[in-house]
Amino acid sequence: MQIHHLNCGTMVGGLVNHCLLLETESGLVLVDTGFGLACVRRPDQVLGPTHRLLRPALDANETAIRQVEALGYAPGDVRHIVLTHLDYDHAGGLADFPWATVHIHGPEFRALGKPGLVERFAYRAPQFAHGPRWAVNEWIGGERWFGFAAVRELPGLPEEILAIPLYGHRRGHIGVAVDTGSGWLLHAGDTIIYRSEYDAAQPGSRLAGFTHGITGVQPLDWLANLRRIRALHREHADEVTIISSHDPAAFRELSGSVR
């Protein structure tokens, strides 16, 4: 499987929106979308006033659809999108691919229908106004992935792509695990911000994402999953590469690479 690493939205402090573009036999698959064209053109309407806290660059060339085109693909080649969660900096480009099947974890889909206070700011109705083609997945038990719960059958996607429930930041927040053929890649979404939070060998504070975590909707679940991510790295770093949505250093190392 070939994997392209895309930054779909530079933000304050150099933070990135680390999305994945996977080349599969089922067509192209996006993991998260970052900010889309409508976000660039009408930021206040589409993103709301809170986007000013993140100060996104809102550069059309950073949108997933323009990067797909720059790689020589047609936008219609993107057949599936897997979302870690529905926050506007992760789902902002959905409307650029209205034909794609959008895979969303059940608790997150239900939160969209009945959002709490934090989610009302994070989920933006204009991003979903086109009527996404939702494919809702649920974890119903069964075989695990390195000790984590795993949804192994995502309709239309190859078995190499798994949804890994990592609740806390949002009620249905997931990671996305990808079997690259030479090891696993875990896109851990917003469970972490910087590698120093799970890898003691990295410079920086292990509490870098603490505020981000405790202001989520389920902080105790977030903390439990952070500890599990640390254990996963400690015990299986030779088998699993962990990335987050926003770590600029990790993105710089992987960007432009194709596995």
Rank of each mutant, 00 (worst) to 15 (best):
M1V: 09
L6K: 10
G9Q: 06
G14S: 08
V16C: 10
E23G: 03
G27I: 02
G27Y: 00
L28F: 05
D32H: 08
G36V: 02
L37Q: 10
L37E: 10
V40R: 07
R42C: 11
D44H: 12
Q45S: 11
R52M: 08
L54H: 14
L54D: 12
L54T: 11
A57M: 11
N61F: 06
T63N: 04
T63F: 02
A74W: 07
P75A: 04
G76S: 15
R79L: 03
R79T: 14
H80R: 04
V82Y: 04
L83Y: 07
D87G: 11
Y88I: 04
Y88F: 15
L94I: 05
A95R: 09
D96Y: 01
A100D: 02
P107I: 02
L112Y: 12
L117F: 15
E119L: 08
F121L: 15
A122P: 01
A122D: 05
A122C: 12
R124C: 02
P126F: 00
E138S: 14
G141M: 00
E143Q: 13
E143S: 09
W145D: 09
G147P: 08
A149V: 03
A149H: 13
V151W: 01
R152T: 09
R152L: 00
E153L: 05
G156M: 03
P158I: 03
P158W: 01
R171P: 10
R171F: 09
I174R: 07
G175L: 00
V176S: 03
A177V: 03
D179M: 01
W184N: 01
H187Q: 08
A188R: 09
G189C: 08
D190P: 05
D190A: 12
I192F: 13
Y194E: 14
R195G: 13
A200H: 08
Q202T: 13
P203K: 04
L207I: 04
G209T: 04
H212C: 13
L226F: 06
H233R: 14
E235H: 13
E235Y: 12
E239Q: 15
T241K: 13
T241Q: 14
T241A: 10
T241V: 15
I242T: 07
S244P: 07
S245A: 15
D247A: 05
S255E: 13
S257C: 11
V258S: 14
R259E: 06
